[in-house]
Design a protein around this nucleic acid. Structure first.
Lengths: 130, 130
DNA sequence: TCAAGTGTATTATTAGATATAATACACTTA
DNA sequence: TAAGTGTATTATATCTAATAATACACTTGA
């Protein structure tokens, strides 16, 4: 996986997912984990495209999705910025965690694992007994 | 989601995933949960295609993947059958659970949730306090 | 023996998603 | 006013998924 440093951000792209989705995921993560400050400017569409050696339209796709999430605000002529609303970030973070959890539980249920089973497995992982 | 009964099996298809993947997932689940007996015959390619109102080639794709999993054996002229090996089924089940767990943990980590956090959330789910 | 029911292979076509390419336009700021 | 922003448009290429229509190989039971 090629690692890129663009501005203050680190990106790694591979072939596991569409490029624009990987960008969205990594930005969502950086924002949710608080690694990007509220209101901070993110790389411009062209700058990120050059840095990652991909097409500007692909970056645009990613940025549009982040704006739909409410995680960024764009100002024509100025750039794209992280939202100022900590509440929006927190809400996004818990909503996405909830989705991930429910999907996971459903997948495990399909394989015949109960919540009880899942709980023990997580417990084992926590104790390092893989 | 349209529900179909084909032979002893119940299928439901939607638009969330490729059709062949949904078939594979639902068969994997039925097998892993032990709802289909070892050695049992599954619907023929044409029968399942007719029942689900989809193309036989799509069913073929799904059945090929199940065979790659080792979960089924096909006998030309006779049909497709669940493996006789309980060990294969058990191993498949735990391998796929492991994958699901690791993917889930990675996704949660990206959002800034620790194993400890995950553990509490599962605990809450278990106690019904959503 | 043969018809019916199996899996399998092939070729063609369509539709949608993804990514690239090349421009052009609108806006902001120094 | 030039340089750097976001945005929109049109075109092209590639890949995956699904369908369609056949054809062939094998097994079984009447």
């Amino acid at each position: 996986m090629k690692e890129h440093e663009i501005g203050t951000l680190r990106f790694g792209l591979d072939l596991s997912l569409p490029l624009y989705e990987q960008i969205v995921n990594q930005m969502r993560g950086s924002i949710a984990r608080g690694e990007i400050a509220l209101g901070e400017k993110v790389p411009s569409v062209r700058e990120l495209a050059q840095g990652l050696k991909i097409n500007p339209n692909t970056v645009m796709s990613a940025y549009k999705e982040l704006e739909r999430d409410g995680l960024t605000e764009t100002r024509r002529g100025q750039g794209t910025f992280i939202t100022h609303s900590q509440e929006t970030v927190d809400q996004f973070r818990s909503e996405w965690a909830e989705k991930a959890i429910d999907d996971f539980i459903e997948k495990m249920d399909n394989l015949g694992y109960s919540l009880e089973d899942i709980s023990s497995i997580i417990q084992r992982k926590k104790e390092g007994r893989v």
